[in-house]
Amino acid sequence: MLEIKNLQASHEGRALLTGLDLVVRPGEVHAIMGPNGAGKSTLSKVLSGSEDYDVTGGTVTWNGKDLLAMPTEERAGEGVFLGFQYPVEIPGVTNDYFLRTAINAQRKRRGEPEISPGEFLKLLNAKMAFLEMDASFKRRFVNVGFSGGEKKRNEILQLLVLDPKLIILDEIDSGLDIDALHVVAKGVNSLRDSGHAFVLVTHYQRLLDYIVPDFVHVLVGGKIVRSGDRSLALDLEAHGYAADRVGA
């Protein structure tokens, strides 16, 4: 279970998260919506340990552990995964090598043995087939020259291969065509069970047609100003954030 209490964070002295509360139980999908610049990506990065931000107050626990006390890679070892709004390119490093390195790094953190190359290949092939990805993506350099949609699909591939427990996806739907949106949703839904918790940042309620959330939150000015169920997203689609901005 993820428990965020009164979280405050800033960047170079500017407060970006201003007292944010959120509880995500295992098996739940929480959608976070909100206007540009509201702090959604900031929340995602603070949860995964980016050093760009100073946490100035509040607490975050994950399964009872103090998440804020851990460096990024340790959080990854604890099952925290961030699907990036802007995935990063790593020239010269092939996708399959990167994924195997990552999987083994996480296993090592958990004191588990390395995955054998054969076992890894089987896993990778299965997930790529599931996501309808061409085999050539194995040997391409991480995100280099990938289209926007391909990058997002590659994030989901990493998600499926690494099988984390707390899954934060930052605008995983932006830049996706209809077919890709289906595939990405299929990937996410395949993990929906009591062992996984989701935080889904999105601007478009359409994603939520495919990945139906348990809760929808509106984030404005660095905190959650309104929460509801699936219907809140539809309401926002119709009326925008005007009412929330006034409240913020």
């Binding site: 340990g49 980016s50 990024t72 890679e73 070892g77 990036f84 790593i90 490093v93 996480q106 350099f141």
Partner: peptide, 20 residues
Amino acid sequence: FYLRQRGLSTEDAVNLVVNG
């Protein structure tokens, strides 16, 4: 940050970029 988020230590992350 991207590589660390996937579980690599800072040193391993830099090494991976350098080797690439």
